[in-house]
Design a protein around this nucleic acid. Sequence first.
DNA 1: ACATAACCGTTGTACTATACAACTGAAGGG
DNA 2: CCCTTCAGTTGTATAGTACAACGGTTATGT
Lengths: 159, 159
Amino acid sequence: MSDGARETSLDTIQRELTAFARRARAAAARLHPELPLVSYTLLAHIDDRQGCRATDLAAHYLLDKSTVSRQIAALEKMGLVERRPDPDDHRVQVLHPTDAGTRLLASTQASRLAAYEERLKDWSAEDLAAFAGYLLRYNATGDTGPPAPIGESWPKPRP
Amino acid sequence: MSDGARETSLDTIQRELTAFARRARAAAARLHPELPLVSYTLLAHIDDRQGCRATDLAAHYLLDKSTVSRQIAALEKMGLVERRPDPDDHRVQVLHPTDAGTRLLASTQASRLAAYEERLKDWSAEDLAAFAGYLLRYNATGDTGPPAPIGESWPKPRP
DNA sequence: ACATAACCGTTGTACTATACAACTGAAGGG
DNA sequence: CCCTTCAGTTGTATAGTACAACGGTTATGT
């Protein structure tokens, strides 16, 4: 297969992922004016890994700690998460969703899922699985899940 | 029963696409501090469809016209696009990239492509093609949302 | 033919998300 | 004990965005 085909694929991937990114927020905002996209994402993560720290969130999403701090503050003010002191280390705050947070998250996820189902209703289960697999694979490269083992092409140290 | 599998795929797609969106901007900013993501995207579109109107951009990216107006103004101030009056309709401005815009876009696209190549170097050409195909299909499927402003069938031709 | 509607773009205002830098407070080592 | 490192907060600045109100332009209906 020619390099041209590979380049075309890369170009398409770049273009389409970017196009998606451009619309994701707007779509999310329309779908859930109550729980902004970022808050939703962080809340979902907190719920997923119960008891995570703000620093974990920052590392996972490549966000500045100040950004996370403010987002968490907002979530707390909305009564969706609570901070618990870590007895072992008084610097850290352990984050947990409140009942309200869990409930709101569930309902948000449900309607979000419904929107995706609507949008992807014509896709076969096989295509969905394959697409999901590619996305996972894509995001896994260069992700900050398990401490990056290898070269890590994106660390971007500040000069 | 395998509705569960379908739901899992949908959930993964939703989660991973969102994760991507979360990082796209940061990554783009690090990669090209000179040309912000949004400006880049709009400039690319203007270059792609030479002679498009601001309203086209707004419709395509689901942006408010005021947003596009300001972005265009910024691009113009940077000397990357120019507005030409449309003789047939004095309301519209026809947008064209300047030489500088074309050049900057080319260099930006090149290094962006290189970043993707680096990131996806382990993927086979077949996987890249399949992933690109899924993304195209995803983005091409009717844009959802309560507003559903206009028919907007999204032709999305690829050059 | 003209009033009215539809449309294109700009500007004023406000809000979210974000970064960077400076700071406080808490461990952890010499 | 200092000194460094780490977790989080706060001050400040900027991009990106939406919504609403507006001015100019074209299309439509009676």
